[in-house]
Write a protein that binds this DNA or RNA. Structure first.
Lengths: 257, 257
DNA sequence: CGTCATAAG
DNA sequence: CTTATGACG
C-alpha cells in the first residue's frame, strides 16, 4: 500500500506542471493533498476527476485559500471532512477517508509565517488538535495523518536550523509540541523511523524566494504521522524530486499490505 | 519627423516583449504611450530611461491603472500633464510636450466597455474635451494628438461593425462626436487622410479574447489627430504589426520637417 | 517568488 | 485573455 502526501500549492497549478500524469503512474493507493486553493466548482474539469480514483475535496470558505483533498484508488466507507472546530473547518484543513480499520487523513496545519495573528491561529490549532489526536488513538484504528504540519521537528529537519530558531515553523514551543506528538501521545514519524539520520534528502519544502531549491535550502515539514500499529508495516519512505509540481515535494511511503 | 502612438498595455509588459529594442531602431522622434500601468517609481530601472530620449510620465493615482507617457528625441520646452479636469487628471489620461510651435500629445480616452459607470465617465470626457480641443485650435499651434481614443469612427474602422453598434466604442453618439471632431471642430485624421478606404490594414487593436488577432478581428481606435496646418506635411502612415508589444499595435506617421 | 482573487480593459 | 495589485505563504 503506497500513500503519498503533497502540498500541491494550487491544484490547478500542479495540474499544469504534470501532477495528474504523475498520479497515474505513481503507483499510489491514496494521495493526500494540501493547499488545493480551489473550490469544487473550479475543479469540475475531467482532468481533476481521473477514472479509477475516488476523491473528495474539503475547500476553505475563502476562495483560492488552503483546502485539502484525498484521491484514493479504493472507495472509502466514509469521508469525514471536519474536526468540529469552526475556526479550522471553514479553512479546509482536515479530511479523513475511512477504509475498514484504516483512516487516511489529509491535514494542513496553519502557517504562522504571515505574522502574529496567523501564528496565534496556528497556536490555537496546536492547542486544540491533541484532543482529536487522542480520539484517533483511542479509536484503535490504523491511522495515517498525511500533511503539511508546518513544523520542522529537529535540527535534522531543515538546512538552516540555527538562523531559524525564532522563525515560525521551528519555534521552541512548536518543536516541543512535536516532541509530545512522538513521545507521550504515541505517534510515529514514518519517514524518520526508516531514515533516523537523513538530512539533505529528507526535505519536502523549499522557499520560492532566493535559490532555495537549487541550493537545497529546504525544510522537512511534510510528514506521514502514523499510529504505532502501522510501524511494523513500514517498508520504505522517500521524497520525489524528479519532477516539480509545487514548492513542496511528494512524500511517498510504502506500507506492507 | 516620425511620430508613433501606442497603447502599450503595461509598459513593463511591453518592455519584456522587446518594445525598447524596437524603440531604438524605430526611427521615431516622438513616441506617445498610453496605459503605462505603472508609477514612476516602478519605472526607475535604466531600461525605461534609454540614453538619447527625453521622457515624462503622467501616471494615474490608482496603481497599475491607465497612465500616459511621451518619449522624445528632443528636449521639450514644456511638459503639460493636466487638463484642469480633476476626474481625468487623476487618471493619467493626458500629457503634452511642447517643441517650439509643435505640441505632441498623448491621450488615453476612458473606455466604456466595463459598464454603465465607465461609459458615463467616457461620456463626461466627450462632453468636457471639446473645450480643450478648441483652446488647442485657437492657440494656432501645430498639434498632434496621439492616442487611444476608444472610438472607431466609421464602418471602415472595425471588422464587425454590424454587431458592435450597441457596444461601447462604436455607439452612435460616440461616432457622432468623431464626426464633429473631423467636421465642425476642424481636426484631421492623419491615417485616414492618407488611406481613405483602408480597412483590414488599418486596425490598431485586437481583443485578447478569442482569436481576434489571428483572424484580424480588429478595431481602429488609435489615431493621430492633427491640426489642419499639419495636413500638408503628411508623408505616410502605417500600423506596425511585425512584432507584438501589446494588444494594440504602434501607429506610425511620418511628417515632412 | 509564486498561486490565486479581483479589477479593469 | 491579459496586465496589473494584493493576500497569503
Amino acid at each position: 500500500m503506497r500513500i503519498v502526501s503533497l502540498n500541491c500549492n494550487g491544484l490547478r497549478s500542479a495540474a499544469k506542471k504534470g501532477f495528474f500524469d504523475w498520479l497515474a503512474k505513481s503507483g499510489a493507493d491514496h494521495v493526500c493533498l494540501q493547499e488545493t486553493k480551489a473550490q469544487p466548482e473550479d475543479l469540475a474539469d475531467a482532468l481533476f476527476h481521473p477514472a479509477g480514483w475516488h476523491l473528495h475535496f474539503h475547500s476553505a470558505q475563502k476562495k483560492g485559500y488552503a483546502g485539502v483533498a484525498i484521491y484514493s484508488r479504493r472507495q472509502p466507507d466514509l469521508w469525514v471532512d471536519n474536526l468540529g472546530a469552526p475556526e479550522f473547518d471553514g479553512e479546509g484543513r482536515y479530511l479523513e477517508a475511512q477504509f475498514g480499520p484504516l483512516s487516511v487523513i489529509s491535514l494542513y496545519l496553519p502557517s504562522g509565517s504571515a505574522g502574529p495573528e496567523r501564528q496565534a491561529s496556528k497556536d490555537r490549532f496546536l492547542e486544540f488538535f491533541p484532543e482529536h489526536l487522542a480520539k484517533l488513538r483511542a479509536s484503535g484504528r490504523e491511522v495515517v495523518i498525511c500533511g503539511d504540519w508546518n513544523i520542522a521537528h529537529t535540527k535534522l529537519d531543515l538546512k538552516n536550523w540555527r538562523s531559524n530558531q525564532k522563525n515560525s515553523g521551528f519555534l521552541p514551543h512548536e518543536r516541543a509540541w512535536k516532541d509530545k506528538l512522538y513521545g507521550e501521545w504515541g505517534w510515529v514519524d514514518a519517514y524518520r523511523s526508516l531514515h533516523p539520520t537523513e538530512e539533505a534528502e529528507a526535505y519536502t519544502w523549499w522557499s520560492n524566494r532566493g535559490n532555495a531549491w537549487a541550493n537545497n535550502v529546504g525544510w522537512r515539514i511534510d510528514y506521514q504521522v502514523i499510529s504505532p500499529s502501522l510501524k511494523a508495516r513500514l517498508l520504505s519512505a522517500s521524497v520525489y524530486k524528479a519532477e516539480r509540481f509545487s514548492d513542496h515535494a511528494p512524500l511517498i511511503v510504502d506500507y506492507a499490505d
